[in-house]
């Protein structure tokens, strides 16, 4: 009987948890302008107004999906380029960035300042809308 209650309780909690975690995907947050660690700055392209720095790990199941989308956004948007930084062997950098999950994408300008941060697999439409004010007209 206890087992049945635990089973039902677990599933009743897991369903909204799943929807909540799904809804969090692609959420964009604005950053207080802060300097990035030098290792991350190395992948930023100063020739482009915006670099989308995708943070990954070896064990990240959704990162290939995020990579496909970001590459496509970069290919179809003037002034935007895509880069990756693997945090698997750099837990110190992950801590400094305050990143706990991957994929996380940093939207960085040409002078290396982080403007926006996108958690999870980005959503194309909201991402393009958020990038627009930072791109040349």
């Amino acid at each position: 009987m206890t087992g049945l209650l635990v089973l039902v309780g677990t599933l009743v909690l897991a369903v909204p948890l799943g929807f909540a975690l799904r809804a969090r995907d692609g959420r964009i947050s604005r950053r207080a302008e802060s300097d990035l660690p030098a290792e991350v700055l190395r992948v930023v392209d100063p020739a482009n107004p915006i670099t989308l720095v995708q943070l990954t790990t070896t064990f990240c199941a959704q990162c290939p999906q995020a990579r496909t989308l970001l590459r496509d956004v970069a290919a179809h948007t003037d002034g935007v380029t895509h880069a990756e930084f693997d945090l698997t062997d750099h837990p110190g950098i992950a801590t400094r960035l305050g990143v706990l999950r991957t994929p996380t994408t940093l939207v960085v300008n040409s002078s290396g300042t982080e403007l926006l941060r996108v958690g999870g697999v980005p959503k194309r439409a909201s991402m393009l809308a958020a990038l627009e004010p930072h791109l040349p007209a």
Partner: peptide, 23 residues
């Protein structure tokens, strides 16, 4: 129950919490 949550989220939502939260 903890293992069940992880397996169910993976099966029903395609979520891998351990992978996302590796860091």
């Amino acid at each position: 129950a903890g293992a069940l949550v992880a397996a169910f989220l993976n099966a029903a939502f395609g979520l891998c919490l351990g992978c996302e939260m590796y860091l």
